[in-house]
């Protein structure tokens, strides 16, 4: 009997994986925005999101703008972030002419908070989440971003919550 129950787990989870694109019963969608707050303070760099995924033929580019939410689109897409110096963009003739397949081969991917909506149990009143990254500066040849703020909205009438974070090198 116990073995049958465990096999039941396997089947249930397996079916769940196959249907992972559907909002599970008793869940709701939480919208998520990921913002980079101070891009304009670093004019020598352009932050470019490189998006690949099952619904994208090759790739899509997203040039990150200050205070504009990043969205990677379909939740199973992959979002990679690069800080491209302006001289590279000028030399190549634009961000769209950069050989990203070459970059992917030589540079490990960098993950930020997944910029896509997600689902949560209805018992949890969370309805929106906005995550704000702030650029700290350059460390060891990399642009350091840290989460400086998170804003949480709820669907039960409770007041929004704002969390603040600091970064200590």
């Amino acid at each position: 009997m116990k073995n049958i129950i465990i096999i039941g787990i396997l089947l249930t989870v397996w079916i769940g994986i196959c249907c992972a694109d559907v909002i599970p019963e008793g869940h709701h969608i939480v919208s998520r925005g990921v913002i980079i707050a101070n891009c304009n303070d670093y004019p020598d760099y352009t932050l470019v999101g490189y998006i690949t995924g099952p619904m994208i033929d090759d790739y899509e580019l997203l040039v990150v703008k200050q205070d504009v939410a990043i969205n990677k689109g379909y939740k199973f897409n992959t979002f990679r972030l690069y800080a491209i110096r302006q001289e590279v963009i000028q030399a190549m003739g634009g961000v769209e002419y950069i050989d990203y397949s070459y970059l992917i081969d030589i540079i490990p991917p960098v993950s930020i908070i997944n910029p896509a909506a997600f689902t949560i149990e209805d018992a949890n009143p969370l309805s929106s989440e906005t995550i704000i990254y702030t650029i700290y500066g350059i460390e060891n040849g990399k642009l350091v971003l840290y989460i400086s703020e998170r804003r949480l909205g709820f669907n039960d009438g409770s007041s929004p919550v704002i969390e603040y974070y600091t970064y200590t090198p």
Partner: peptide, 21 residues
């Protein structure tokens, strides 16, 4: 009943300069 935890609190984005190419 907790709100989702924050992953990737600090990220280090690779800088692409001409030397990369």
């Amino acid at each position: 009943k907790v709100i989702p935890p924050l992953d990737y609190k600090v990220v280090r984005v690779p800088v692409i300069d001409l030397s990369v190419f």
